[in-house]
Design a protein around this nucleic acid. Structure first.
Lengths: 111, 111
DNA sequence: ACTCTCCCATCGACAGACGATGGGAATAAA
DNA sequence: TTTATTCCCATCGTCTGTCGATGGGAGAGT
């Protein structure tokens, strides 16, 4: 994951972003990347070499499942869906993330 | 950097946290770790094996300088101070961080 | 025919955080 | 006085995760 013309930041957050994206419905890999890019107004530019390994990890952990289908452009595409465990995991990671961001914010705003 | 009883999160943010801490005045390594822990109410627990390498990197980049002195407990300690370049870098990283957090927030709060 | 966008995926390199480890000096407790 | 605790430095090896480069292949437009 990177920011435009800049160094990569916040590794470890990608899985959370993916889980959250899939919570809005099934998507294929390419679609996930697009979604992140557009929703973040081009700030989040996830490369495919970051995305697919992450999806593999999520599959292995049983947080998402995948099935082949046809994309909206009539192409062969793999659709990823959140499992029940994935939904639980999303909640967990959301909490951890909020907690951490709050903590960092404390540091950044302490005189 | 890690959260209590949990997996590590947000690697890459450590340098920002250190720079921000030193913006409040010179500190030695141990003091930096303590500051992060206390300000964040024990959420941020930076181990020494994360901290010292990070400080070395900051030294190499010229963002902090170090000098030996005596700690408040009468021990030999290395005090780190922000350089002018470090101050500029802090501003840059702050902006990038805010930008990124905002982007992530967009994703997390989009239906 | 050709190119463009879409969509899959892997490989090797690299960065950064972590646990384990090791040392030494001041103070407090036994 | 021995012992333990806190304070303070630092490195090594490992592992996880991201990235650039690479390599397909199949529809759609020109």
């Amino acid at each position: 994951m990177g920011i435009k013309d800049g160094p990569e930041l916040l590794p470890g957050t990608l899985e959370l972003l993916i889980l959250r994206t899939l919570a809005g419905g099934a998507r294929h890999g390419y679609g996930i990347a697009q979604h992140l890019k557009s929703v973040s107004e081009d700030v989040l530019q996830v490369g495919e070499s970051s995305l697919y390994p992450a999806l593999q990890r999520l599959l292995l952990k049983g947080w998402v499942k995948a099935e082949w289908g046809a994309s909206e452009h009539n192409r062969r595409a793999r659709y990823y869906t959140l499992t029940a465990a994935g939904r639980r995991q999303l909640a967990v990671e959301q909490r951890e993330f909020d907690r951490l961001i709050l903590a960092i914010h404390e540091v950044l705003n302490t005189a």
